[in-house]
């Protein structure tokens, strides 16, 4: 049990470092929206989601309604429902309800990706270990970013902004290099995402909705063209 926890902690270190950098710039954004460092830290520790929080800050800055806030979060974070569904397949079927309540809390893109790459079926100690440092890094980064706002040159925060994308590339590229289905799905997602960005008639679609559509379409096509084997998840082998 203890080994599972430390194993999770170790796997969470790179995520925590990446989160710290990203949430640092999130904290800076929050200050300009009139959110204090403490409020930012509360938001980060209760939400643990980059895109959702970025959007939430904009809603607050614009003085949006609570309905608008709920809808924005629903659309932007709907992908977590797909991830949770996927994750539930890797949990022990006998895992009690309350443990699932804990695991659900910080099912982020990166924690999900690492958890799905984990060789064995997922236990509560492993998931708590995996989630603790990223939650800490995410919250501390937000707080310090908001607190240190104004002390830091913009060129540094801009460069740190790119770290999150670097992490995404580090997760996907090695798999896409080895697996043709993953490569095709990835390329299709990029193609669709560019289409939403540059095609004039699609530019009105919000970024959040575009991500949902790109994800669903690319994954659906992958599922039709390259169904994974029933016995084993095709990509769960370590890179």
């Amino acid at each position: 049990m203890k080994k599972e926890f430390t194993c999770g902690l170790r796997d969470g270190i790179p995520i925590a470092l990446g989160y710290f950098a990203v949430s640092f710039s999130l904290g800076i954004t929050m200050v300009s929206a009139g959110i204090s460092a403490l409020q930012g830290a509360v938001m980060s520790i209760t939400n643990v989601t980059s895109a959702g929080e970025f959007a939430g800050v904009r809603v607050i800055a614009a003085g949006g309604t609570l309905i608008e806030m709920a809808l924005t979060q629903f659309i932007i974070n709907l992908r977590y429902a797909l991830m949770s569904m996927s994750l539930s397949q890797k949990l022990d079927r006998e895992m009690p309800f309350w443990q699932r309540f804990v695991i659900a809390f910080a099912n982020t893109d990166e924690i999900f990706a690492v958890a799905m790459n984990h060789q064995k079926s997922l236990t509560l100690p492993y998931m708590i270990g995996l989630q603790s440092l990223p939650i800490l890094g995410w919250t501390a980064g937000t707080f310090l970013g908001a607190a240190a706002c104004g002390l830091m040159p913009a060129s540094v925060s801009v460069a740190m902004n790119v770290m999150l994308y670097g992490m995404f590339i580090a997760i996907v590229f090695p798999v896409a290099k080895k697996s043709k289905p993953a490569l095709v799905v990835s390329l299709l997602a990029v193609f669709l995402s560019c289409l939403f960005r540059y095609a004039p008639f699609l530019q009105g679609v919000s970024e959040a909705l575009s991500i949902i559509i790109c994800t669903a379409a690319a994954a659906a096509l992958g599922a039709v063209l390259f169904p994974v084997e029933d016995t084993e998840r095709a990509g769960s082998e370590k890179e």
Binding site: A189, C214, T215
Partner: peptide, 15 residues
């Protein structure tokens, strides 16, 4: 099952 397997790659690359 296949769809859910491909979701993270599609989602991360689209973002």
């Amino acid at each position: 099952k296949s769809f859910l397997y491909y979701v993270p790659y599609a989602c991360l690359m689209a973002m």
